[in-house]
Structure formats: structure tokens, C-alpha cells
Deep mutational scan, measured.
Amino acid sequence: MSGYILFSSEMRAVIKAQHPDYSFGELSRLVGTEWRNLETAKKAEYEERAAKVAEQQERERA
């Protein structure tokens, strides 16, 4: 899992709640824009969280 995927899943729900009429493409475009504009430190937080999720998933598969 990547930081972007984690961010995307969280942001998509927020944007969808604010704009229920937006298409999947419109939501994706907005999520991508939000990610590109996100501060580097915040991106790093998402990357760290994603790494922890990936480690947990790997342990569960073992």
C-alpha cells in the first residue's frame, strides 16, 4: 500500500460526501490535485502509515 492510496481512500469519502453528484473521474482528479498540493510532511505521514499497514498485512498473511 502506498501513501497515496491511503490518502485517496480517505479523501475520496470526504469529497464524495461534499459532492455526491461528482463522477468517479471528477473525484479522482480532485484527489490527485489535493495530493499534489499536500505538504511534504503530510505526505510523509501517509507514507509511514501505509508502510505500517503493509507490514501488518504481511504479518497476517504469514
Rank of each mutant, 00 (worst) to 15 (best):
V31A: 05
L30F: 07
V53N: 14
M11V: 07
W35N: 01
Q56M: 12
R36C: 10
E58A: 08
A62Q: 03
Q57R: 11
K42G: 03
A50S: 04
T33C: 07
A17S: 11
T40D: 13
Y22T: 14
Q18V: 05
E58P: 07
H19V: 02
I15K: 07
V53L: 15
L38R: 01
V31E: 03
K42R: 07
R49A: 05
E39G: 12
K43H: 01
E39A: 12
S8E: 14
D21A: 06
E55L: 11
P20M: 03
Q56E: 15
A41V: 07
K52R: 13
R12H: 08
T33G: 06
H19P: 00
G25N: 11
L6N: 04
G3T: 00
R12L: 13
Y46E: 01
L30H: 15
E10P: 01
R61D: 15
Q57W: 07
Y4S: 03
E47A: 07
F7T: 01
G25A: 14
I15L: 10
F24S: 15
Q56T: 11
S28D: 13
A13F: 03
A50I: 01
M11Y: 12
Q57I: 13
W35V: 01
S9C: 07
A51N: 12
I15Q: 03
S2N: 15
T33E: 13
E58C: 12
T33D: 13
Y4R: 15
R29N: 09
K16M: 09
A44Y: 11
R49D: 01
A44G: 05
S23V: 02
L38Q: 01
S28R: 07
P20A: 04
S9P: 00
A41C: 08
K43P: 00
F24Y: 13
R12Q: 12
Q56C: 12
Q18P: 01
R59V: 11
M11G: 01
T40K: 09
R49Q: 04
T40E: 14
E48M: 09
E58T: 12
S28E: 15
A54M: 09
V31D: 00
E34N: 05
Q56Y: 10
K52I: 08
F24A: 15
R61A: 12
A62D: 14
R29L: 06
R36D: 15
Y4C: 02
M1Q: 05
A50N: 02
I5D: 15
Y46S: 01
R12K: 11
D21K: 08
E45S: 06
G25E: 14
S28T: 12
I15E: 04
R12F: 11
Q18E: 12
V31P: 01
F7R: 02
M1N: 14
G3Q: 01
F24R: 13
S2M: 04
A17G: 07
E47G: 06
T33Q: 15
R59D: 10
E60G: 13
R49V: 03
L38G: 00
K52Q: 10
R59M: 05
F24N: 15
E34S: 11
A62G: 15
S8C: 15
G32D: 15
E26W: 00
A54C: 08
M1A: 11
K43M: 03
Y22Q: 05
E39V: 04
R59I: 13
L30N: 06
T33A: 11
L27I: 12
I5M: 13
E55D: 07
P20V: 03
L38S: 01
E39P: 15
P20N: 03
S23C: 05
R12P: 01
A17L: 08
T40R: 11
A13G: 11
E34M: 14
L30A: 15
Y4P: 01
L30Q: 14
E26S: 05
W35P: 02
V53S: 08
E26R: 09
L30R: 15
W35T: 02
S23G: 07
P20G: 04
E45Y: 06
H19N: 10
A54N: 07
Y4G: 01
E48T: 12
K43C: 01
L27V: 14
T40S: 13
E34Q: 14
R12N: 08
A44E: 10
K52L: 10
A51F: 07
A41S: 11
G32L: 12
A13S: 14
R29K: 13
E47T: 05
E58N: 12
S8W: 02
F24T: 15
A44S: 09
R36Q: 14
E39L: 03
Y46V: 01
